[in-house]
């Protein structure tokens, strides 16, 4: 069943060393991703400091229900990915395939709900760049809030889309029986990426949706 993957590439001593290198490389890549989002998070912090009331008011225009549901959906998709790794590690093929499919389904569901939200903002003229009503009071701060909202969730959505495509590829490879407990580095790295995207959302959710909901 196993082919060339059983042998390490030329520059490695053994498969363990190769796997460790791939894992380290992936973590370093996630570091760069964190700093990439970091630029947006610090912008958010600066503007929330500049326009505290406007941000709170604008936040109420977001759909908290969809936001909360989406958070749950992403967490469940992450569970799917975690189970996929478990399946790959223990050679439980059904678990692996099922976990990956679950992640794809829930990930896509997240994107659909996100798209519905975006559409509503477009209708409400809250989409800076495409359709935005500058005549409302505090338009500047509101514009900045919605720009950040779209930049942050948009960048997150791009990452999630890449994640879904990646997982589809992994699913195909898993279906072709390319993974075994000895070799599942692509699964592992896709999982790390997916969880990272999940973590970003976990911070985006309260920062964007839950500013002063109680008022």
């Amino acid at each position: 069943m196993q082919k060339a993957e059983q042998f390490p590439e030329l520059q490695y001593r053994d498969l363990d060393q190769q796997r460790e290198a791939a894992e380290l490389g992936m973590w370093i890549f996630l570091t760069t991703e964190l700093l990439l989002f970091g630029g947006l998070f610090i912008s958010y912090a600066v503007y929330r400091h500049t326009y505290p009331e406007v941000f709170a008011e604008a936040s109420r225009h977001l759909d908290t229900v969809i936001g909360t549901v989406n958070t749950g959906i992403l967490i469940i998709s992450s569970l799917g990915m975690a189970l996929a790794v478990y399946g790959a590690q223990t050679a439980k093929r059904k678990r692996l395939l099922f976990g990956l499919i679950a992640a794809i389904v829930f990930g896509t569901a997240f994107m659909v709900l996100k798209g519905i939200e975006y559409y509503h903002h477009y209708l409400n003229a809250e989409f800076p760049g495409l359709r935005f009503d500058y005549s409302v009071p505090d338009a500047k701060g509101k514009q900045v809030f919605f720009f950040l909202y779209f930049a942050m969730t948009g960048l997150h959505a791009i990452h999630l889309t890449i994640g879904i495509v990646l997982v589809c590829i992994i699913l195909y490879l898993a279906y072709r029986r390319r993974f075994s407990p000895d070799y599942y580095t692509p699964v592992e790295n896709a999982v790390l990426y997916w969880h990272f995207v999940d973590i970003i959302w976990i911070f985006l959710f309260p920062l964007l949706y839950l500013i002063d909901v109680h008022k």
Binding site: T64, T68, T71, G72, I75, I76, S78, L79, A82, F205, P206, L210, V213
Partner: peptide, 12 residues
């Protein structure tokens, strides 16, 4: 996963 979902409700 369960505790993550609980925490999500808690945040809300």
């Amino acid at each position: 996963c369960g505790s993550l979902l609980v925490f999500t409700v808690l945040t809300y």
